[in-house]
Amino acid sequence: MVDVNGIRLHIAEQGTGPLVVLLHGFPESWHSWHRQFGPLADAGFRVVAPDQRGYGRSDHPDAVDAYTILHLVGDVVGLIRALGEEQAYVVGHDWGAPVAWHTALLRPDMVRAVAGLSVPPPFRGAQPPLAAMDEMYGGRFYWNYFERPGVADAEFAQDTRTTLRKFFHWGSGDAPHAGEGRQPLVDADRGWLVDMEDPEVLPAWFTEDDLDALTESFSRGFTGPLNWYRNIDRNWELTAAWHGARVTRPALYIYGDRDVVPAFPGTPELIGQLPGLMPNLWRKPLKLAGCGHWTQQERPDEVNTALIEFLEAHS
């Protein structure tokens, strides 16, 4: 347990050497990186993965506005310092990717290099994102569903293990309709889980032990993690000063060709433009064939190889 930014974060740690901070996404925990610890540590790095605020054994602030992007970046900055370091490599997946990208954007002095999995670098749009999605999909985009206080919280907490099993199957490259450009739309009256398939057998990369660990980490419910989504428009307001800014630190972007996130409106075009928009993008975005949303879990060997090459190239 580490005290940072006014809260306590639970971390997992392995290895010695330059610090690499691994930031998980939704609905996950530090455990989503368990296949990265050994290889990165063996390559000569000190690997630290926190349960981010609102998750697992870390603190779960009650206030919705305690989960803004400035709080989340502040947690990373505080963690780096609490670990006795001045700089770190910062790597994020899903929601952890925007936290990693924004840490490099807001505090480039503390970031040796940055990598994002699934979610590409942030380029602030002209209007608040929740309002844009509400207008585009009539309030059915999952961000808008999550925005409703207590609704998704209650649905997901009815049977935590089943919720997580469905989510991991739905978002994986193994799902029947993965990679078909589908958008995550929700009928708010019926909820999201009712239309998600419940697999009889888990994929080889996500075992029953993995599901046990993840289920235990959500014993305090889903409200903290969902509060991240409830700050999407607030984050847009708070980052006005960085409108048009670019991540200038060395950067790596990895995504799966069957991941739903890179198919979000405007995202395929953004990914195609990244080499021209990112002055220090390492090589070109790495697209993993057959990989869904859970990038580092579905393709650990390919992700580990790419991360180690990237980190060593910028050591």
Rank of each mutant, 00 (worst) to 15 (best):
W101F: 13
I7W: 06
S29I: 09
R182M: 15
D209E: 15
R220F: 07
H93Q: 15
D75T: 06
T163K: 01
D301N: 11
G25D: 11
L274K: 10
E13R: 09
E180A: 14
D210N: 09
F123A: 09
L211P: 04
W33I: 11
E28D: 13
W294Y: 13
A152N: 10
G272N: 13
E86K: 15
G266S: 03
E147G: 02
G6N: 07
L277E: 14
P268W: 05
P268Q: 11
W170L: 03
G17R: 05
W294Q: 05
A245S: 14
T163A: 04
H102I: 12
E28V: 07
V260Y: 13
H93Y: 13
S172R: 04
V201N: 13
G139F: 10
P108C: 06
E309C: 02
F37C: 03
L23M: 01
R35Y: 09
D259F: 00
V99T: 14
F141K: 07
S217H: 04
G272H: 05
F167A: 08
V99D: 00
P108K: 03
G6R: 09
L214W: 00
Y137F: 15
W236S: 04
L106H: 02
P120M: 06
G150C: 07
A49T: 06
A115K: 00
D59C: 06
D187G: 05
D153F: 08
R148K: 12
D189R: 14
A100W: 01
P268L: 12
T103A: 05
D59G: 07
A113N: 02
T16I: 14
H293W: 04
R124F: 11
R234Q: 01
G116A: 07
D210I: 07
P275F: 10
P39G: 09
D198R: 10
V90S: 03
A49R: 01
L277K: 09
H243N: 14
E155I: 13
G276R: 11
N5M: 10
E197W: 04
W33N: 01
D187A: 12
A313P: 10
P129W: 01
H60T: 08
Q36D: 13
H31N: 09
Y137D: 14
A251R: 00
A313Q: 10
R53D: 06
N235E: 04
S118P: 08
L238Y: 02
V21M: 10
E86Q: 14
L130E: 08
M136H: 07
N280K: 15
M136G: 06
G125E: 11
W192N: 06
L83V: 05
I254S: 01
V247E: 07
L185A: 05
A152G: 12
S29P: 00
Q273D: 15
Y55D: 02
W282R: 11
F218H: 11
G221M: 02
R81K: 13
E269W: 07
V48Y: 03
Q127Y: 09
P268Y: 04
W170E: 13
A41W: 02
P108V: 08
A204N: 11
G191L: 10
